[in-house]
Amino acid sequence: MYNERVVKEFQNPQNVGELKDANAVGTVGNATCGDIMKIYMKIEDNVIKDVSFQTFGCAAAIATSSVATSMIKGKTVDEALKITNAQVVETLGGLPAQKLHCSVLAEEAIKAAINDYLKKYKEGKIAD
């Protein structure tokens, strides 16, 4: 049901774990629906210096988390905000129809983490 790329990404996911010095965190989904994605970011000078994830979910959820975090590493916040779920799916070479929601979750998790950053920045909790 999954292509080789998805399987490979699931078996050897990149950017796994808690990022200790993260200054932004975004969590989307819930356990009842069977998917939770939590993305940690270390943002400096508007650039995502480091990123990691923790995911509770199916193979597709883990694979999309891996790919999506890799896609935004080193990007500016504005560039990261432009990443769409369709681009995540494209990078994975496609997902089964019933798994497309995982890619939506990845896009939402990125946005949630960046929003967390922008909110903290506005509140003066993060210095320039």
Binding site: Y2, F10, Q11, G34, P96, K99
Partner: peptide, 28 residues
């Protein structure tokens, strides 16, 4: 942890079993 990812990992290790969970049936 979630059933399908366990199932899939077991399958990659050559072990076949089944999950009563969401993803195996294609429904949520």
């Amino acid at each position: 942890i979630e059933g399908e990812s366990i199932l899939m990992s077991l399958d990659l290790a050559g072990i076949a079993c089944s999950s009563g969970s969401a993803c195996s049936s294609g429904s949520l």
